[in-house]
Amino acid sequence: MTWEQPSQAFQVFGLGTAARLVGRRNEGLREARRTLERTIARFDVEPSPGPTPLVFAGSAFDPSGPKTDTAWDAFGGWQVIVPAITLLRRGDEWAGWACAGDFPIEEHAAQIASGPETSPDELGASIARAVAEIQAGHYQKVVLAASRIVETGPMTPAEVLARLARAFPTCTIFSIRTGGLTWLGASPEPLAESRGGYVSLVSLAGSRRRGRDSAEDARLERELLDSEKERWEHRLVVEAITAEAQGLVDDLRVPAEPTIMKLANIQHLFTPIEGRLAPDRSLLELVERLHPTPAVGGWPRDAALSAIRRLEGMDRGWYAGPVGWVDAAGDGQFVVGLRTALLGRGFARLYAGAGIVSDSDPSAELDEIETKLDALRGVIAR
């Protein structure tokens, strides 16, 4: 497991395995949270103002979704991982912990499953059907995604991670390796963070590509800020996050207007949300409550998940699922598994999606998905 936030000079490296607990593919965050809580409770650590041991965790997007890609079988529905050795860097300061564990021989890279890629024509038709269902009042928003297989040649996961860190320094760069495959990504979207009882949440929804020069970039930024469709989609996410956080987070502070987050090839509407973790509540409860947000699933949640299962026709695996870590004090970070790839021998399967609402244009949404896929293609493809 690796975790890096280049712009904050923050890195975590997990080496070897003290414990790796894997859930069945029809299990999800609820089972992962219970296992993670039991694992943290077993730490025998004296209270300290300094860093404490970390437990890593991740889960699939939807335990009830299609399971047609056997490459995800080794990952299961969720994993809870305690490395044998954990190294953590904040700026120039390093910390480390060791647990009794194994250092297995490096697995040979496995082959990515040769399932079909998402056809643009089929996805465009699914987007059109989703728009019709939204206009008929079945739900308000759904996020539909696509996958592509690209050739990577002899590039190793470490090389890909280094490229991601250089290309997306403001994102969270992460990886989990199992069964000879590596799931990695450069997520722009924090899900929840807790430090010393204070909680940070983020709404990231609504997007435009970056401009070819500063003038075009500024025009696209203004277009994004002025778009009624994009602002409505963004507001839906803000309202859903604040509603789900009720009872778990006190003193929520939500800016009245979004700002812009600029990434290498795309810009998003961005609203940071802050508060205090309520007494006897945990970051893990908050992650379970929030996932999936309308930014990656849709709204209302159950109706949107049903639409994804019917219309998308793809095994998402861990794409758009939560991934992160928690320490013995209950602090930690989770992000949404976006801008991700499943890396195997010589090839990788890339994932990206777009939010569909009542006035979505299928061709524009397909362009947005390709823009997001291009962000990874440029780094991973040979």
Rank of each mutant, 00 (worst) to 15 (best):
K67T: 15
R42T: 14
P154K: 07
S214F: 10
S214E: 15
Q8P: 04
T118Y: 03
W97K: 02
G65Q: 12
V150P: 00
G185T: 10
D62P: 03
L286Y: 04
D374A: 14
T35A: 15
E244W: 06
G115K: 01
V335M: 07
S207G: 09
S358K: 13
T172D: 03
A162K: 00
A348V: 08
V237R: 04
S175W: 06
P292I: 05
L15T: 12
E365H: 10
V287R: 00
W325K: 01
A245E: 06
E189A: 09
P279Y: 12
V379H: 07
G196E: 07
Q135F: 01
D361I: 05
A348G: 10
D331W: 05
P66T: 14
P272F: 01
T178D: 15
L15G: 10
D73L: 03
E122C: 10
A304M: 04
E27G: 04
V55K: 04
T118H: 07
N26K: 10
V336I: 14
V160K: 06
E46M: 13
A100K: 15
E365G: 08
R253H: 08
G76C: 07
E122H: 10
G197T: 08
M261N: 02
R30Y: 11
D121F: 12
E122A: 13
E239P: 12
E370W: 02
P272T: 12
V82K: 03
V45H: 04
E312D: 09
T293M: 05
S175I: 06
A158R: 08
F75R: 06
L161S: 05
L366H: 10
G324E: 08
E133M: 05
L204R: 03
P279F: 10
G180M: 09
K262M: 02
Q246W: 11
S7P: 05
W72E: 02
D73S: 13
R210A: 11
T271R: 04
S282E: 03
L338V: 13
S194P: 00
N265L: 07
G247S: 05
S7Q: 14
T52Q: 11
D217S: 11
W299S: 11
F61K: 00
R345V: 04
I105H: 08
H291E: 09
G321W: 03
T2I: 15
I369D: 02
R219I: 06
G115S: 07
D359E: 10
T86R: 12
L236C: 07
P63M: 11
F10C: 08
A98S: 14
R310L: 14
S126T: 00
L204Y: 04
P83K: 00
D327E: 11
S194C: 14
E368T: 03
A57L: 14
A98G: 09
V296T: 07
F56Y: 12
A328Q: 10
A95K: 02
P362T: 03
W318E: 11
A329H: 08
I149L: 12
E106H: 11
G313P: 07
L277T: 01
T293C: 05
G330S: 06
E4W: 12
S227P: 13
L36H: 09
E370D: 14
D367M: 10
T178E: 10
R90H: 08
E221A: 15
E230L: 07
V131A: 06
D327G: 01
M261A: 15
L184F: 01
E107Q: 15
